[in-house]
Design a protein around this nucleic acid. Sequence first.
RNA 1: GCCCCGGUAGUGUAGCGGCCUAUCAUCCGAGCCUGUCGAGCUCGGGACUCGGGUCCGAAUCCCGACCGGGGCGCCA
Length: 442
Amino acid sequence: MPSWQHITYSDEVTPEMYGKEVTVGGWAQEVRNLGGISFLQLRDSHGVVQVTLLKKRNKELFDLVASIPRESVLRVTGEAKQSKEARAGYEILPSKIDILSKAETPLPLGVVDKVGADLDTRLNNRFMDLRKDEVKAAFRIKSVTLQGIRQFLSSQGFTEVSTPKIVAAGAEGGATLFQVKYFDRNAYLAQSPQLYKQNLMATGLDRIFEIAPAFRAEASDTIRHIAEFTSLDVELAFIESSDDVMEVAEGIVINSLRHVREHAKPELKALGVEIGEPLTPFPRVKYADAVEMVRSRGMKLEPGEDLGTEGEKLLGDVMMEEKKADLYFITEFPTALKRSTFYAKRRDDDPELTGYFDLDYRGQEIVSGGQREHRYDVLTEQMRENNLSLESFEFYLKAFRYGMPPHGGFGFGVERYVQKMLNLPNIREAVLYPRDRSRLTP
RNA sequence: GCCCCGGUAGUGUAGCGGCCUAUCAUCCGAGCCUGUCGAGCUCGGGACUCGGGUCCGAAUCCCGACCGGGGCGCCA
């Protein structure tokens, strides 16, 4: 125990400590007063410890505990005693109880109440909501997921970088940009590090990744959209095709899933989630074939038309039923659907197709990327197609004129990934303090 | 941006023109209870989002505002 730790956590009390004095601390989750005996359930960050009080043994402490409002913070010192009734296998017979912080009543949101609460109410009282194990668990798993991702990418020689979040121009159109005041000018919050990570491909930092917030002013009220999300962005140079990029994306998912499976067992249990071994290699479905697959299931769709949300969901069902695959790539996106993605490389043998791909997780897109166009002339031509002003992209374009290797990469939605991994009903369950069209606090 | 739906105690709900002095659970308060862990029992407390309108009468119907839920489009 480090010298700065002053309480013993509930799961740190070992049988060797039975009969000895310990000090525990936490939130008064519940008091069951049976008259002559009462039980205080004290919750700490590791679990719940039972503090047992006998009226005839210490009436003063007994009455004190009976009067403590739920969720007050207490420090309890007493003897740890083995007990077959207490769930932890032991209980504390207190000699001293300090009320470190008294909670007001009523609570804005119950922690162990037998009634549910709307997500809105929970988010308005997020600190209280996060006292619930199953709510906290998702965020511990998110942390373990990011660990797994960093571990894998580091092992593959990737350098973690940071690019600016206050920018002068976006990667795509301006509609989804948040404007901010920047001294005496206007600036925007970055919707993607796209231009910067490509810029870095001209530096010799051949493999880079960034885990950072991305801001999108999309007026989308759905269970999979938020205005501020965590984007894992990866870019690598000297690739031969989009296949190289897909392999990296696949490696990230396989390794981070394994990492979570091995390092978040209690949290997965709290959520009632089991993560199986994904089918590998992830199946690759050509976009044109994906369209045929959903058409054969009765969906009205023209060849080459956008799958749409319905098509994506349907494809997810088909992949699950026919291949038992919950993770799969949709490849060779038609150029027609990627025109606004001006930096996407079109195939030399068929300019109507790109090497762009999505990685879908049970009918939900979580990754999108592919090989970029690294030839200056072709790139600028594709930008003109989009009526982009080349001057405002000069910092980006300049890097393509002085030696830019072929490269590719992708954007990976971390919260969407966690949402699908844990079957969370709403992406907001994977963000501590979500930002959406209407929510700016807390 | 478009479409659908909803706002009733701290929390989650029932009621949908008069039976509402508004249901139930949870919660809060008082009391009983020496092994509880969805503890139990008795008694008590607490609410119709706001503003207009229709009607003899509005929680209930209509209009607007505000707040929220979901779908589509777009996307991570």
